[in-house]
Design a protein around this nucleic acid. Structure first.
Lengths: 331, 331
DNA sequence: CTGTTAGCGCTTTCAG
DNA sequence: CTGAAAGCGCTAACAG
């Protein structure tokens, strides 16, 4: 690895001159020396040493992102959006999954905390109190989650999306609409539930608690919840599932119970991904702007780092994607 | 952020002494000063500055991992295994997805290359030549892929797994067994294809080229390939799909063509994940030790970094998981 | 326009 | 047992 000093020797100038050239500092440098240096730089393929720069400047142009795990395509899309924006802003993005265990002694290992200038938290497995503590150490923005006392976040229009999904069901003539909600201690779970309630309200359809089950955002979560629903005193003709994985799990349960989708039960869910179209029947979804959320989150974090701009944004834009899992109700 | 020097001042000793205490150096230090220092360290919550350490030592205890994208649960499992082992070995793992674009000027951005001591390549989108070039710069191990001229890799027993899958079909009485292979320019695609051939050979069943279609490892890849297969002059009674996503895509195509699985067509595939059980019918798979591969890859990379041990390992252990997509053939 | 100097925070070798 | 000093590679303020 060639260093500034070496270049300086070969060029017969002082290292600091090289530094100025490399960093394009607004100082005047004689053209011939500048060119000589530039040539050398290229010839020897000079690459500044990051560790030295970091030490000197006390910053890395790197940000971290914490996701619960890598199995959920919802996060995959957020990550890709974040990666893209980070690259545009010339930041490096490091992604980690964080399980409970690691939170115990320290919220984030030092090895990570010290290499980044700010962090994106996209995991709802981390307690509010831990997030608050983290916020004292680093610029932080929440992604697709909310936390008491933190007004720096990027979320989708969960309640609007939910409302749109349920309104679709309503339009199809359904009135017995079940909801498998996300965990109600999460912002997304709560907002989606509220969207569901709001849509029902608009049509003066009473909320029936027996038609609602709370479940984690996972395949088995949806599967188990649907099985719960089968035990309800009234049977729904449609289901609004809080998330794609939940919907897939619910669909499985329906298949096992010989409930035909969409003939016996219409299903609509939030989040769109390729897999939704590959299910049988292909799932009707409301697409959330996940990619954009990732982008926005990085943009916002960087502005927080650079200018201490703190704010919350909800990325608008939800889109109903009609496929084959919803159908007009007539009986 | 409190520094060594500050601690030293408060303790009334020289910074270097603190350094020795912090790092548990095998030098004798009087008990009372050591305790005094230790107390101070805790009280002020001293955290060594990583950038300074990196600069000084020229190493980071960090490794990178490159995956094609975050949508594939196959990689999710490898990542989790790698994360786990990295944590055990006290390395930090940074994961990135790498698309074509970024490869153009430089295989890996400097911002990343310089922060890591070695790299795991789990993406087959990167050309062999690029991988070779990268290997000149960094200790490198290939994960779940092979590359000409690189004998540092960790792969699963792809051909053994494939053979096991096809043997299962054979045992069920199938003889017209189609194969949707992975890209044959990849090591995994090739090995799985060979396993398929080997299983057929053992039962003296001729290989029928019309029953084989090459496809990328993706949902649409499988979907399109299956549609190709429907045009074949002979119709298979069973399918061996090279990968779980491919199988899901193929299943979708079958559903659209009213081919009942498993009655008209049995399907078996490689890789197991929760989603396999959630399909209807639940997919029979051969489980590959992905998590272990991730672990092994990190272990091997670290031994390459520390002791320059270069080797290739195939992580053995494949397991047939019978579910509902395969069935005895009788007609 | 170019050079000097100092120092980021830490580790390590050598001396006391 | 503890201190001094040097230096990793780079940057920035200041001097020449």
């Amino acid at each position: 690895m060639v260093t500034l000093k070496e270049i300086a020797e070969k060029a017969g100038v002082h290292p600091s001159v090289i530094s100025k050239v490399v960093n394009g500092k607004p100082v005047s440098i004689r053209d011939d020396t500048r060119n000589r240096i530039l040539a050398l730089l290229k010839e020897l393929n000079y690459q500044p040493n990051k560790a030295a720069q970091n030490l000197k400047k006390g910053s890395n142009r790197a940000i971290g992102m914490v996701v619960p795990d890598f199995f959920n395509t919802v996060y995959a899309e957020i990550i890709h959006g974040a990666e893209n924006m980070a690259a545009q802003l010339e930041y490096t993005l490091f992604v980690y999954s964080l399980k409970q265990k690691e939170l115990q002694d320290d919220y984030l290992p030092r090895s990570i905390k010290q290499q980044i200038d700010g962090i994106l938290i996209a995991s709802s497995d981390i307690d509010d109190s831990d997030v608050l503590a983290l916020m004292d150490e680093l610029p932080l923005v929440l992604v697709n989650r909310l936390s008491k006392g933190i007004d720096s976040y990027v979320v989708a229009d969960d309640s609007g999306g939910a409302k749109k999904a349920v309104a679709h069901l309503l339009e199809l003539g359904h009135t017995q609409i079940a909801h498998i909600s996300g965990p109600l201690y999460t912002g997304t779970g709560l907002n989606r539930f509220q969207g569901y309630r709001a849509a029902l309200n608009e049509k003066d359809i009473p909320f029936h608690p027996a038609l609602m089950v709370e479940a984690p955002y996972s395949l088995v979560g949806g599967y188990n919840a649907m099985n719960e629903l089968f035990k309800a005193p009234v049977q729904p003709t449609a289901l609004f599932a809080s998330n794609l994985l939940v919907a897939i799990g619910a669909l499985k349960a329906c298949n096992e119970h010989n409930i035909r989708v969409p003939d016996d039960l219409s299903i609509v869910t939030l989040h769109d991904a390729e897999i939704a179209a590959m299910m049988t029947p292909a799932l009707t979804t409301v697409k959330l702007p996940l990619y954009e959320m990732g982008e926005t989150a990085v943009k916002q974090l960087v502005s927080l780092i650079d200018e201490n701009h703190k704010k919350g944004t909800v990325v608008e834009g939800t889109e109903l994607i009609r496929r084959d899992s919803t159908k007009k109700w007539k009986r």
